[in-house]
Design a protein around this nucleic acid. Structure first.
Length: 428
RNA sequence: GGCGGUGUACCCAAGUGGACAACGGGGCCUGACUGUAAAUCAGGUGGCAAAGCCUUCGUAGGUUCGAAUCCUACCGCCGCCA
């Protein structure tokens, strides 16, 4: 399938530098997307560009991932209202390391040369450059008049509260240079990115156009994808407990699965198109199913399953589904010890000395504030009075004590508040 | 530098000597309903050994039997004038 058609039916084509890119993409091309190493894990929101690169690859093209080791030191002003704090090189390096796993999982780095993915760090070509060289060879091609027209810059210039430093102002020069470098060294003629990257992409194309005179030039192109917003206007990938990451040590596969499962009906189909590789007829089928019986949440389940499988593998997916089954049925007594062990680490957990459970045990009203489930004894009593607390799936009386016989499989006790908040006590 | 305003709980915001752990709204939590949803309704939302006690109204002092409320100084924010 043609890449452009693919983006189009998925509503992922926001802007492109040319109307007939479709024809241009009949042949295998090289495209890149840049990633800022501002965190040691991508969030669910920024896997969209990675998935876009994967689609690109599946359409028979070659993807290049550019880690912004150098540009990350500067900070992209696009879409930012305030000057960013600079990260130190060590942090950047370890952040790149942290994000690498996601790229390796989603892209094929071992296939035939023509479509094999490549991962580069722009630090590699920026470290060799001297400031004077850059001013002379690159800076010459940039008109400050044009630069200050860019949205990313003008927004900051017009705000009297928050200006922009020369450093961030120069960001687009660096990103433009990336494109030029890749164009020269890797035959890369396309840059993709989120819609907020349009200005930077165009800067790169302009630079290429100036460096390479018209007759001998292969025209460079840019494609952007829309900003992913939820139907309520909030940003995709933000939960109450913070951002949803793809690295399992920051957001467990279970938590990710849950997050996606709770996608609003209004967003489910759209996100299926955005984030999964399901084909058009499969998506349509799910859409129809959702209209018939929304309570079954087929679309949400497909979204959650697909993404967890994609990012963490089928084993992790199975575990997440099994954990959810136990947790939401409340039926945790029937679990075997292996599944219980899995589940304990999926929810907030603390250790407890078994000695405290012997004899009379310890009253829940007193103990709950030691867990994540209550802030104070007053609150604990309130929850108990509301029958909101259950131990191993059974509603607890207000004067209930935790005792030795509550321990499941010699390893843990599972306490639940309300429907969804769990806390596991591990016996130590 | 001068003049004026303002600072209350997670956020907005009432309160201007005692009945104030502090009206109201938002948020958040719990319950009912439900699809592990949305919407809606009900309750809760400083702490504790709880008919009581302790800590909290920018900070530090002071007046008073008694202060979020009055006084002094300091700090922060917002205007207007230089």
């Amino acid at each position: 399938m043609n890449f452009i058609d693919e983006l189009q039916w998925r509503d992922l084509l926001f802007q492109a530098t040319s109307e007939d890119l479709g024809a241009y993409l009949q042949d295998s091309r090289v495209a890149y997307i840049g990633f800022d190493p501002t965190a040691d894990s991508l969030t669910i929101g920024n896997v969209l560009p990675v998935i876009t690169l994967a689609r690109w690859q599946r359409c028979g093209h070659k993807p290049i991932v550019v880690m912004g080791g150098a540009t990350g030191l500067i900070g992209d002003p696009s879409g930012k209202s305030a000057e960013r704090t600079l990260l130190d090189p060590d942090t950047i390096a370890s952040n790149i390391q942290g994000q690498m796993g996601t790229f390796r999982r989603l892209l094929d780095f071992d296939g035939p040369e023509q479509t094999r993915a490549v991962l580069l760090n722009n630090m590699d070509w920026f470290t060799g450059l001297s400031f004077v060289d850059v001013l002379r060879d690159v800076g010459k091609h940039f008109s400050v008049n044009a630069m200050i027209q860019k949205d990313s810059v003008s927004a900051r210039l017009s705000e009297r509260e928050q200006g922009i430093s020369y450093t961030e102002f120069s960001y687009m020069v660096l990103q433009a240079y990336d494109f030029l470098h890749l164009y020269r060294e890797h035959g890369c003629t396309i840059q993709m990115g989120g819609s907020d990257q349009w200005g930077n992409i165009v800067s790169g194309i302009d630079l290429i156009n100036k460096v390479f005179p018209s007759p001998e030039r292969k025209q460079a192109h840019g494609i952007t994808t829309p900003l992913v917003l939820k139907s309520d206007g909030s940003k995709m990938g933000k939960s109450e407990s913070g951002a949803v990451y793809v690295n399992p040590d920051r957001t467990s596969p279970y938590a990710l699965h849950q997050y996606l499962l709770n996608t609003s009906d209004d967003d489910a189909v759209r996100f299926l198109k955005y984030f999964t590789f399901l084909q058009r007829d499969q998506v349509q089928q799910l859409e129809a199913l959702m209209q018939d019986s929304p309570q079954q949440r087929h679309a949400q389940k497909a979204l959650a399953d697909e993404l967890v499988d994609m990012l963490h593998g089928s084993d992790e997916l199975d575990r997440a589904v099994a954990a959810a089954g136990a947790l939401f049925s409340g039926n945790v007594r029937g679990l075997d010890d292996r599944t219980l062990a899995d589940l304990v680490i999926e929810v907030p957990h603390t250790s407890i000395d078994p000695g405290r459970l012997s004899g009379e045990g310890v009253p829940l009203a007193e103990f709950l504030p030691e867990t994540t489930l209550a802030d104070s004894r007053r609150q604990a009593r309130e929850f108990l009075a509301n029958s909101a607390i259950s131990v191993n799936g059974d509603v607890a009386d207000p004067d209930r004590c935790l005792v030795t016989t509550d321990i499941l499989h010699d390893q843990a006790i599972l306490i639940r508040r309300g429907k969804k908040a769990w806390h596991a006590l591990m016996i130590s």
